[in-house]
Structure formats: structure tokens, C-alpha cells
Simulated scan of single mutants.
Amino acid sequence: MPRLLIVHHTPSPAMQELFEAVVSGATDPEIEGVEVVRRPALSATASDVLEADGYLLGTPANIGYISGALKHFFDTIYYPCLDATRGRPFGAYVHGNLGTEGALKALRDITTGLKWKPVVEPLSLTGAPDSAARQQCWELGATVAASLM
């Protein structure tokens, strides 16, 4: 059974709302045969990454960059997973109170280095999550999970 690994840093109520919407989309009953595994960025391991067939990444934009927790995740898994995960699909969402450009660039640079393939463009969300943002996250989760069916 294909496995989707959701790696997230969820330090705020806004990030929690978005994370729950992503999980809801990824675990929609119409998406059959995909196991969804959730790991906080600080506890996700190279083994988690190697055992997954695709990835969904969630991070706040902190001072113009991805969270330290997600950066730590990438620092930990980069070389152990570099060759074995080449070409695997991924999606991402970034939330910021201001701009998300730096965080999006960092995600793009790191995932390009890993040679992961985006299923869709990463979501850039700012301000308090509204129904449109939650819907976008739901669709992101569903789309990435469905790509593994």
C-alpha cells in the first residue's frame, strides 16, 4: 500500500487549522489504498522518509524562512535519503503573517536538491485561515494522496 508522509511544524492555532484540513483531504474516504502517516518535523526520521512513497510538508514562514523544525528535518534526512527518494512526489503549504517568499524559495531549493517532484505548486497562505484557505489545504492533501493511488 502506498504511504504518504505528512511532515509538519504546527506551533500555532492557524497552523493547526491548516494541518487538520490537509489531513482531512489526504484521508478522504474516496482516496483508497493510501496510508497516511503524520510526523511532527522534529520527530520525523530518515526511516520515515525512506518508507514513504510521497510527502506533504507544512511549515510556518518564520522571519522569511521555513521553520527551524522543518530545516532540522531536512538537515537530518537529506543525505541518507538523497538517492533513494529521487523523483518522489510531494506537496507543501506555508503559512505566514507576512510574506512567505523566503520560505517558499527554501522549500523549492531543498526539494529540488532532493530531486523530489511537486504534484502541485506549494500553497502560500497569509493571515488568519478562512474557509478558502482551509479548502485549498483540503484539496492539497487530497491531490497529493490521490497521486499515490
Rank of each mutant, 00 (worst) to 15 (best):
M1E: 10
M1Y: 03
P2T: 12
L4Y: 02
H8D: 11
H9Y: 11
T10F: 03
P13E: 14
P13H: 09
A14F: 15
A14N: 15
E17W: 15
F19W: 15
F19S: 11
E20I: 04
V22Y: 00
V22L: 13
V22N: 06
V23E: 15
V23K: 13
V23Q: 14
A26N: 07
T27A: 10
P29S: 11
V34W: 01
R39M: 12
P40E: 15
P40W: 05
L42G: 06
S43D: 15
A44Q: 07
T45H: 01
T45Y: 02
S47G: 13
D48E: 12
D48N: 14
V49I: 12
V49Y: 01
L50I: 07
L50S: 06
L50W: 03
E51L: 07
E51R: 02
G54F: 00
Y55F: 15
L57F: 08
L57G: 03
L57C: 06
G58Y: 12
T59V: 09
P60K: 02
P60H: 03
N62C: 12
I63D: 10
G64M: 09
G64F: 02
Y65R: 15
Y65N: 13
Y65P: 04
I66K: 01
I66Y: 00
G68M: 08
A69T: 11
L70N: 08
H72T: 13
F73D: 03
F74V: 06
T76H: 03
T76A: 06
Y78P: 01
Y79T: 08
P80F: 01
P80H: 03
P80C: 02
C81K: 00
D83F: 07
D83W: 10
A84I: 06
R86P: 00
R86H: 02
R86S: 01
G87Q: 07
R88F: 00
R88T: 08
P89H: 07
A92W: 00
Y93P: 06
Y93K: 07
V94G: 00
V94R: 00
H95I: 07
H95W: 15
H95Y: 09
H95T: 06
G99Y: 09
T100R: 05
T100D: 08
T100M: 10
E101N: 11
G102H: 05
L104R: 02
L104S: 05
A106L: 04
D109Q: 14
D109W: 03
D109N: 14
T111S: 02
T111A: 01
G113H: 01
W116R: 00
P118Y: 01
V119I: 14
V119E: 13
E121Q: 11
P122S: 07
L123F: 05
L123C: 08
L123V: 10
L125T: 07
L125E: 09
G127T: 09
P129T: 13
A133W: 00
A133N: 11
R134N: 15
R134H: 12
R134G: 09
Q136R: 14
W138G: 00
E139H: 11
L140S: 05
G141E: 06
T143H: 05
V144C: 06
S147I: 12
M149S: 15
